[in-house]
Amino acid sequence: MTIRFLKTKAVLSENCTVEEAEEIVQWLINNPKAELNMREVTHLHTASLQAIAATGNRISALPNDPFCAQALQRLGRA
């Protein structure tokens, strides 16, 4: 996966693996008002989903992949 951490947004793309889950959650905790852009995500490991669910950050762009988008919509922050 590629993660680009910007000032107020994290842009995730491709395959979100278990290895990136800790990095994602730490950044989201340290940036509680930041948003996630996940438009280019093609696969979302459950550890990454749990990391995202554990924070209150807004998802500004859901993945184009319907399965990933549906899982994230259930968090109610998109």
Rank of each mutant, 00 (worst) to 15 (best):
A10K: 00
R39T: 08
E23D: 11
N30F: 08
L75V: 05
P63D: 07
E22A: 15
Q70M: 13
P32C: 07
E35R: 07
L62S: 11
S60E: 05
V41D: 00
A69L: 05
E14D: 15
C68G: 00
V11I: 15
V18L: 10
R4Y: 08
R77T: 01
P66G: 06
E40P: 04
I52K: 06
D65E: 12
S13P: 03
A47W: 05
A51K: 04
Q73I: 10
F5H: 12
V25Q: 13
V25P: 10
Q26V: 00
A54E: 05
A61I: 00
T55K: 09
P66M: 07
I3W: 07
S48T: 15
M38R: 00
S60M: 00
R39Q: 10
T17K: 02
Q26K: 13
N64C: 09
E14Q: 12
A78H: 06
T42C: 04
I52D: 03
N30A: 15
A10L: 11
Q73E: 14
A71V: 14
N64Q: 13
G56Q: 12
F67Q: 10
L28V: 03
R58E: 09
A71W: 06
N57M: 07
V11W: 04
E14W: 07
A54F: 02
K7A: 14
P66A: 07
A69V: 05
I52M: 03
E35P: 00
L36V: 10
T55Q: 12
L28H: 02
H45Q: 03
N57A: 02
E20V: 15
G76I: 08
A47P: 00
K7M: 06
Q26A: 10
K7R: 14
L72E: 00
T46V: 14
N64S: 14
Q50F: 11
L36A: 03
Q73K: 15
V41F: 12
C16Q: 14
D65I: 06
A51F: 09
Q70R: 13
A21L: 11
E20G: 05
N15S: 10
Q50H: 14
I59P: 13
V18C: 04
A61V: 02
G76H: 08
A54T: 02
N37A: 13
N64K: 15
P32F: 10
M38Q: 00
S48F: 08
M38A: 08
R74T: 09
L49I: 02
I3H: 09
R77M: 04
T17N: 11
I29R: 13
E14S: 11
T8S: 14
N37Q: 04
I52N: 00
K7Y: 09
G76T: 01
F5D: 05
L12T: 01
V41C: 07
K33R: 11
S13M: 02
A53R: 09
